[in-house]
């Protein structure tokens, strides 16, 4: 995806990341954040959560991956998220994005980001500033 190919209002192709327990376990081990609230449903429930939850940085990673699937090689200058509710491990997730601004001088775009949980509820909102090739 090149800057010249992008228009205000374009939607990024939707993604459906794998948030199964196997994937979350791999992530938390690699990220040195192997805590039971991410990997043990019963423990998470004992803390008042609906089940083991997907780490916030993992959700950010899925949103960044969506951007790179849309525009391989793009440089993400900023990715800013607000977490509104939890994503429960072993459910399903949907990542969406939309181009909301174009910076012609620097070939950068502003992208709205949302991540929905299995009930269609928005769990994460955010924005990204992405530099695209000419």
């Amino acid at each position: 995806m090149r800057f010249s190919e992008v228009e205000l209002g374009d939607d990024l192709p939707e993604t459906h990341p794998d948030i199964s327990m196997d994937k979350v376990r791999l992530f938390v081990k690699a990220a040195y954040m192997d805590f039971p609230r991410f990997t043990d449903h019963e423990f998470a429930k004992s803390e008042g959560l609906p089940g083991a939850i997907v780490p916030g940085v993992m959700s950010q990673g899925f949103l960044a991956a969506m951007i790179h699937q849309w525009a391989p090689g793009a440089k993400i200058h900023k990715l800013d998220t607000v977490f509104r509710t939890t994503m429960v491990v072993d459910t399903s997730a949907t990542c969406r994005g939309a181009v909301t601004d174009l910076d012609e001088d620097h070939h950068r775009v502003e992208v709205d980001l949302t991540m929905l949980n299995h009930e269609g509820v928005t769990s994460v909102i955010g924005t990204a500033t992405v530099e695209l090739a000419d």
């Binding site: 209002g9 800013d80 607000v82 502003e110």
Partner: peptide, 17 residues
């Protein structure tokens, strides 16, 4: 504090869409 929208971007979005 949890808003991420610029007002001018709201305007251009409304018109573009």
């Amino acid at each position: 504090d949890d808003g991420r929208a610029k007002v001018d971007n709201y305007c251009q979005w409304i018109r573009k869409k």
